[in-house]
């Protein structure tokens, strides 16, 4: 069979390995470890919104969030052999994303010490800016209030609450993402709830 064009065959290998819907993270991780690149792409597509969402909600900047997403997956794929529990890939990935986002926070703080203002801070993206199309004005207002309240939380509390309630991770995954114990994460989420409640005047 003759080749039609080089581009027509750019992805012959990957489609032949299209993962079944039922492929668990553990299966995909095992296949990726065996060198099957399609499994890496499957893992990426499955979790990219979680990673990008984590980065965007914490950093509030699209360009930085995209960078962090790229860094997170690069690091994850590089260290895939070190993942002890393949089934816990999602939480592990979130942990890397949170860690990379926190590195950015540290860099920001360092720059602020030298009075270097981040130009891209003008492009801040809040929850209300990202409201789904068709969201009501009330929804947007509520999101804006929540956004403002979240910004007043200390970073550990904000991170925990964002991963748990904004991104919808389980408590266990949130603990993994924040690199702390279940008890600690529960305490942080509860503290964040309490402070948000206070900031929102009991209306949240």
């Amino acid at each position: 069979m003759a080749l039609a064009s080089p581009k027509a065959h750019l992805r012959v290998v990957a489609p032949l390995h299209a993962p079944e819907q039922g492929d668990s993270d553990a299966v995909l991780v095992a296949r990726a470890r065996a060198g099957e690149t399609w499994a890496l792409e499957a893992l990426y597509r499955r979790h990219v919104q979680l990673v990008a969402g984590t980065a965007l909600r914490l950093l509030r900047n699209r360009a930085e969030a995209e960078d962090v997403t790229q860094e997170t997956f690069l690091l994850a794929f590089e260290k895939l052999d070190q993942l002890a529990e393949p089934a816990a890939f999602r939480g592990w990935l979130a942990r890397i994303a949170v860690s990379r986002a926190h590195r950015r926070f540290r860099a920001r703080r360092l720059r602020s010490l030298f009075f270097v203002r981040d130009a891209d801070r003008d492009d801040e993206v809040g929850l209300a800016d990202d409201a789904a199309p068709g969201a009501s004005p009330e929804d947007r207002t509520e999101l804006a209030l929540l956004d403002r309240a979240l910004l007043r939380l200390p970073l550990p509390l904000r991170t925990a609450w964002t991963v748990r309630h904004v991104l919808g991770c389980s408590v266990e995954e949130t603990a993994e993402a924040c690199a702390c114990s279940l008890a600690t994460i529960k305490r942080r989420i509860a503290a964040a709830d309490e402070q948000l409640h206070a900031h929102l005047g009991g209306a949240s």
Partner: peptide, 20 residues
């Protein structure tokens, strides 16, 4: 439902492809 369900995806399809 998580608040993310009321938000647009953090990365649109072009962004997903570009990042990959």
């Amino acid at each position: 439902a998580p608040i993310a369900s009321r938000l647009s995806p953090a990365l649109d399809e072009a962004g997903v492809a570009r990042t990959w």
